[in-house]
């Protein structure tokens, strides 16, 4: 509560929206890591979840649709001491900004991306998103969608991120632990949170109240280790419709802004090429 801009409250989110829970978990993870809000810059794109930085007392950047990660890349390279956190939704990160997401993961730039995956386009009226589960009903799919959804965490692991975890909003403690690790991790950290959208997803898919949606998460969540065991035993059919939660990868490798600093040290003898160019111009 002390981190929020009190004049903006109550927030704009629908009753029972998962965004607030994720914000609370973020504060908890940040507190236990011992990071002050002054060292953090929040970047967001367009969407319900991207309104989160507007409620927090910190430096924030509200950018164009899908380009949150590219703006954050610039911010991080310009000032590598800053802790850059990107709040993004599934439409923002997976559909319009999908390319930026995989390339940020490939470069392994030190960002913390918290992707709030509510499996639908909530702000624009309930259209089917790339992460909507097969058979779910939306405004653009009145007979149920036939497409296979993106498995965002697996995608980012394959692209080369160094920390990836997925949780749902009913596991706020595990989520805050993961956010703590993600903030601490030097490299691209991706935390996917499966969140509820009772207004658009729930209403059309027979999960009308937030409590129903949260209960369905509780029933369908299955830990990564258990899921791996099931796959090893050849019982993959049992995983249909389940949400695999847990840590997907936690492996350090060379980081992008360090590489840039090393390169500028080698070539110009100074650590921050961008900063020095700016300063020398000011002297004239």
């Amino acid at each position: 509560m002390k981190y929020l801009r009190k004049d903006r409250l109550p927030n704009i989110f629908c009753p029972g929206c998962g965004n607030g829970t994720i914000l609370n978990s973020f504060f908890r993870g940040m507190e236990s890591e011992g990071i002050d809000l002054k060292e953090i810059a929040m970047v967001s794109g367009i969407g319900c979840s991207s309104r989160i930085p507007g409620y927090v007392k910190c430096d924030s950047l509200h950018t164009t649709h899908g380009r949150a990660i590219s703006f954050a890349t610039g911010l991080k390279v310009g000032n590598p001491d800053l802790n850059v956190v990107v709040f993004t939704g599934d439409g923002d990160a997976a559909s319009i900004g999908g390319n930026h997401l995989i390339h940020a993961a490939r470069r392994n730039i030190n960002l913390t991306v918290i992707c709030i995956n509510n499996t639908i386009y909530g702000m624009t009226g309930g259209q089917i998103s790339p992460t909507s589960p097969e058979g779910s009903i939306g405004t653009t799919a009145p007979y149920g969608t036939r497409d296979k959804p993106f498995n965002l965490s697996e995608l980012v692991v394959a692209a080369g991120a160094s920390y990836v975890a997925r949780w749902t909003t009913i596991q706020p403690l595990q989520l805050s632990n993961s956010i703590k690790k993600a903030l601490n991790n030097p490299g691209f950290s991706f935390v996917e949170v499966v969140s509820q959208c009772p207004t658009y997803f729930g209403r059309k898919n027979k999960l009308r109240t937030p409590v129903d949606m949260v209960k369905s998460f509780k029933e369908n969540a299955i830990n990564k280790r258990k899921a791996d065991k099931l796959i090893a035993d050849g019982k993959e059919d049992e995983l249909i419709g389940k949400i695999i939660v847990g840590e997907f990868i936690n492996k350090k490798r060379a980081e992008f802004s360090d590489n840039v600093c090393n390169l500028s040290k080698q070539q110009c003898g100074e650590e921050h090429a961008t900063k020095s160019a700016y300063l020398s111009k000011l002297e004239y």
Partner: peptide
């Protein structure tokens, strides 16, 4: 403090 953590509107202390 689980209710405090889960409350989406930060209404519970």
């Amino acid at each position: 403090h689980l209710c405090e953590l889960i409350c989406p509107d930060q209404a519970i202390t």
